[in-house]
Nucleic acid binder design. Structure first.
Length: 724
DNA sequence: TACTATTTAATTTTT
DNA sequence: TTAAATAGTA
């Protein structure tokens, strides 16, 4: 067997990983060290050289994109399609299992997947129904609580209220939420994983069957696994499975979503025979960029430890620009982007990265002014759009009348005279008889309601029944086409003023084409409609249509993970923004921010700009901030500071500026002789910058952001601040 | 029931 | 600032 095609182009560490004997293996793959390459080549090696059947392999990723890419790369390596190879996301694979074994998983055959938006709606309704006296029941918090428990593998009965009434209420809500889902045959994202885990845990034969089948388990982005995902893998691995996991503890940036880097250590304990290979040679960035990244990340504690290196050139220094404000920052970035583009470089090879989405606005304005085409990542995806979800809700109801989530969404959309009162009537009937809204609607229409409301409900019920009958047996795309028209959605959006309605109708038509292009997976035996609905829930689609033009890329540092660009800007590098204010105060939070910074830096191949603004308009008010502490962690010799052009081009001093905007009134703080942005020194807290002033005379308070002590609010008269 | 005014809060996001 | 959620009005 000629193994050169699989092994050539690999360095020694990569080759060691790819050809490792069949034992558990942990691969720590630094940014740009060829992580995907190792995974795909390992799969090819197992199939081609070790003679493992593709059916004996399971490869898990976190995103559909990564899964698709991995399959494509394996197929191009092997020069043949590998249909029986299971490659997918945790959720996708769990879904497949649940479809196959729905009975053992105790699910209805046509269970529906709900996304987090549907989930939130259900919780909101639940809270409203219960009329909780305490107004403090944020649906989001409850949602977070529920998902957190599910991610940990915990059901309501596992939870102890710890004598805390708050917690008791949350547990009760979790229980009731789950009852609603179970009754309606609804499965949320976390539930997919939890059910799949329970399915194996409670069915030893089934588990054994899968353990026999999948001996080799390959996991991408291992540092991002949450507890239930890890438990699922461990269950599958059993005593004989061979997990091959690849991850990077320094790129773990999803702790807030349940990801636990600790699983890397757990893995070594659970699989004592596991070897570890570190991939540290980087093929992406210049030495300067890697040195900077290493210097930043070394400040984190509890790392496995890893140092990226390259055989490549030193490269350009990292350029740091201190902007006067966020507009100045945007103009600077756009100026450099224009130069880049004019020098004949691909705009798509340049990216502007920021910590939070709100920062994109100013940048976009500047790009529009400069007529530079750009593309913003993130935001609403296709299957998440309102009109699309409306249409899908009709389809869901057609497929499954008990789906309350879908029912509530479209019962009065377009409006058909079923208002809050009528709905309330139905809800209380449904609650009293613990039945679905659909059944409640039928019952309530025939007695409890007034003539008008009753006939409106009957019209709706008949509409759904008729749509179900009319579309039965039609090809999927015709079903969808029928539904968007006879539901009245198209007509409804046509009346919406402005361009918005038009776009919505276009999107609905796009949904018909999506249905036309949908190829059901022959492996799972669902109706094409149910297959399509699952597909819509699991793959919410691209954030934006593919850019047909060569565009500058704008995105958060989170969404940049896994990507690379020749030219990268890290914007808004200020304490309070990045690291974010909400993470600045605890060690774990700060270290995650630092990892995010590490991710940001290592996106750059050749040129890296870091910018920060002294003054920034945030939530409507101007604030001042220090340059991010992460900038200071980059060694000076790697950095070249760019001074603001000429002093005169600098706009007015902040206080004067504020006065002008507020129409001649006196700027806050002027009466006590300070201005916003003023540097001060405090005997105990050290040096800082005045962020805000409030109150008058001896009550006047100042908010000071200290370099080391953080932000404090002080009574000016007592604080004894030295102005600097 | 639908539209408009007011209030409130404000990372990161895949499935 | 702004978007979204809620409250109030026609």
């Amino acid at each position: 067997m000629d193994v050169t095609p699989i092994l050539e182009s690999l360095n020694e560490a990569q080759r060691k990983a790819v050809t490792a004997v069949a034992d558990p293996l942990l691969v720590i793959a630094g940014a740009g060290s060829g992580k995907t390459r190792v995974l795909t080549h390992r799969i090819a090696w197992l199939i081609d050289v070790e003679g493992v059947s593709p059916q004996g392999l399971l490869a898990v990723t976190f995103t559909n994109k990564a899964a698709a890419e991995m399959r494509a790369r394996v197929e191009s390596l092997l020069k043949m399609p590998v249909n029986h190879l299971w490659i997918g996301t945790f959720h996708g694979l769990a879904h497949r299992l649940l479809r196959r074994h729905w009975q053992q998983a105790r699910l209805p055959q046509n269970f529906q997947i709900i996304d987090s938006d549907d989930q939130l709606r259900i919780i909101k309704r639940l809270i409203k129904n219960l009329e909780l006296d305490d107004d403090s029941w944020g649906a989001r918090e409850v949602q977070y609580f529920i998902n957190k428990q599910k991610d940990e593998g915990l059901r309501p009965h596992h939870l102890d209220d710890e004598k805390d009434p708050n917690r008791r209420q949350q547990i009760a809500l979790y229980r009731q939420y789950q009852e609603i889902c179970d009754r309606g045959g609804l499965v949320d994202f976390a539930e997919l994983l939890l059910r799949a885990h329970e399915l194996w845990r409670d069915n030893a034969d089934l588990l054994a069957q899968y353990q026999r089948r999948f001996r080799h388990l390959l996991v991408d982005e291992f540092q991002d696994t949450n507890a239930i995902q890890y438990a699922w893998l461990r269950l599958l691995a059993g005593k004989t499975g061979v997990p091959f996991v690849v991850g990077d503890d320094d790129q773990s940036i999803y702790r807030w979503r349940g990801a636990r880097v600790e699983h890397i250590g757990q893995f070594q304990r659970d699989f004592p025979r596991a070897g570890m290979i570190k991939l540290e040679q980087n093929y992406r960035s210049t030495k300067t960029i890697l040195d900077a990244a290493n210097a930043v990340i070394v400040n984190n504690s509890a790392r496995l430890g890893k140092n990226l290196w390259t055989e490549g050139a030193q490269g350009e220094p990292i350029r740091v620009y201190s902007a006067y404000n966020e507009r100045d920052e945007a103009n600077f970035v756009v100026g450099k982007l224009r130069d880049w583009s004019e020098q004949g470089n691909a705009r798509a090879d340049a990216a502007v990265l920021y910590r939070s989405n709100a920062q994109s606005r100013v940048l976009e304005e500047a790009l529009i002014n400069a007529r530079l085409p750009y593309r913003v990542y993130g935001g609403l995806r296709f299957f998440e759009r309102q009109e699309i979800k409306d249409a899908l809700a009709y389809l869901r109801l057609i497929s499954h009348r008990e789906d309350d989530s879908a029912f509530e969404r479209i019962v009065n959309r377009p409006t058909r005279g079923i208002g809050a009162r009528t709905l309330e009537e139905m809800r209380s009937y449904a609650r009293a008889n613990s039945c679905s809204m659909w059944r409640a609607a039928g019952a309530v229409a025939s007695d409890a309601l007034s003539g008008r409301a009753s006939s409106a409900v009957v019209v709706f019920l008949n509409l759904i029944e008729r749509m179900a009958k009319d579309t039965d047996g039609l090809p999927l795309n015709e079903q969808v086409d029928q539904v968007i028209h006879s539901s009245g959605l198209v007509e409804f959006f046509r009346k919406e003023k402005g361009e918005r309605g038009e776009t919505r109708i276009e999107n609905l038509e796009e949904l018909v084409s999506a249905a036309r292009g949908f190829v059901p997976d022959p492996a799972d035996d669902m109706s094409p409609l149910d297959g399509f609905l699952s597909h819509a829930a699991l793959e919410s689609g691209e954030g934006q249509a593919d850019a047909w033009e060569d565009c500058v890329q704008l995105m958060t540092m989170h969404s940049a993970k896994g990507l690379e660009f020749s030219l990268v800007f890290l914007c808004g590098m200020e304490d309070g923004l990045f690291p974010h204010q909400r993470s600045i105060n605890d060690q774990a939070g700060l270290e995650e921010e630092r990892r995010l910074c590490y991710v940001g830096i290592t996106r750059a191949k050749k040129t890296l700009y870091i910018t920060h603004a002294e003054q920034r308009r945030l939530h409507g008010t101007d604030s001042f901030a220090q340059a991010s502490r992460f900038i200071a962690e980059i060694p000076d010799e790697l950095v070249e500071e760019i001074r603001p052009r000429v002093q005169v081009s600098r706009p007015m001093r902040p206080a004067a500026n504020a006065r002008r905007r507020s129409g001649g009134s006196i700027a806050p703080g002027s009466e006590i002789g300070v201005r916003l942005g003023q540097r001060v020194r405090h005997a105990k807290f050290g040096e800082g910058v005045i962020m805000n002033c409030s109150g008058q005379g001896s009550h006047a308070q100042v908010e000071v952001n200290f370099e080391t002590a953080g932000t404090k609010i002080l009574v000016f008269a007592y604080a004894n601040l030295d102005l600097m």
